[in-house]
Design a binder for these strands. Structure first.
Lengths: 152, 152
DNA sequence: AACAAATACGTGTATATACATGTATTCAAA
DNA sequence: TTTGAATACATGTATATACACGTATTTGTT
């Protein structure tokens, strides 16, 4: 769907302004698609993200701050997301021996199973809805990295 | 900043998968930049969005559902966002005469003033941080609309 | 060794997101 | 005309976002 239809507006200051809105809208759209699939696994978007990060290092242990700095949305309240995952017995908390300030997190067997099933589903839905080829994706990656060049 | 540094990961399934994450990360980055500026005006990202939509129709009245369908994030709880704006006396609520189910919203003088000042700031920060030219922005717009082609 | 600063995490608050439900009003079919 | 469905909005709940602050631990400086 064209952005104009999606947000019922045709008045954009210029193409750059429109690109900003397009990025925000596309991200919302993508999150919505993913969340709908993850719901079947009882996971939210952010809970899934934390599980993925844990998997990346598994069976190595990883502490809360290392999870936080890998999150897509940097202001995520990781301790609270881990609270939910712990209740569902998908992860385990332990105090680090090396540095008692750190809480190290590990995946449970159940966590591994849920992650594997949901990842399969997420990969499938990505292939299904993102109808672009590798070159187009590559262009997007280059352009978005240029957008963020100025850092903040 | 490269996505790899931003989320400390180098393992992407393919360019399409990476593009998905890049879109999500760039949207977060853009929202963060905007929110930081809006904070000086006591506004959140979504409150600003509602004010902009009201301005687009001003001095015409607009009802809650028409605001909702123009929002970038479609699941926004518009009545609640309007609650906050009403407390700050930036908007006014009234029941529609034509259809008493509808609540029509209008900007106050104070709302108009805050919106104008904040819009100036937002436009300036857009120009400042989004260092791409019109052609590059146009490419992004085309590519993102292709990404969303499949609808859902 | 003692103490100040930094770090890591948990917790609290306000707002937003996502979704379900309740209530009043309008519309449409019998 | 009456009644059931649809619509518009408000409200409630769980989770997330954004940010501030408190506590425990570690580090660095004197």
């Amino acid at each position: 769907m064209k952005l104009e239809q999606a947000i019922q507006s045709t008045r954009f200051k210029n193409e750059v302004h429109k690109a900003g809105l397009n990025i925000l809208y596309t991200a919302w759209w993508l999150k919505t698609v993913m969340s709908r699939e993850l719901k079947e696994f009882g996971l939210t978007h952010e809970q899934y993200n934390v599980l993925r990060i844990l998997k990346g290092k598994h069976p190595e242990l990883i502490c809360v701050k290392d999870i936080a700095c890998r999150m897509i949305e940097k202001n995520s309240n990781v301790p609270r997301i881990i609270d939910r995952l712990e209740i569902k017995k998908l992860v385990k908390r332990a105090t680090s021996e090396a540095d008692k300030r750190e809480t190290v997190i590990s995946l449970t067997q159940s966590g591994i199973a849920v992650l594997e099933a949901s990842t399969q589903r997420i990969n499938a839905i990505f292939d299904e809805v993102m109808v672009i080829n590798e070159e187009e994706a590559s262009s997007i990656n280059q352009l978005l990295e240029k957008v963020r060049e100025k850092e903040s």
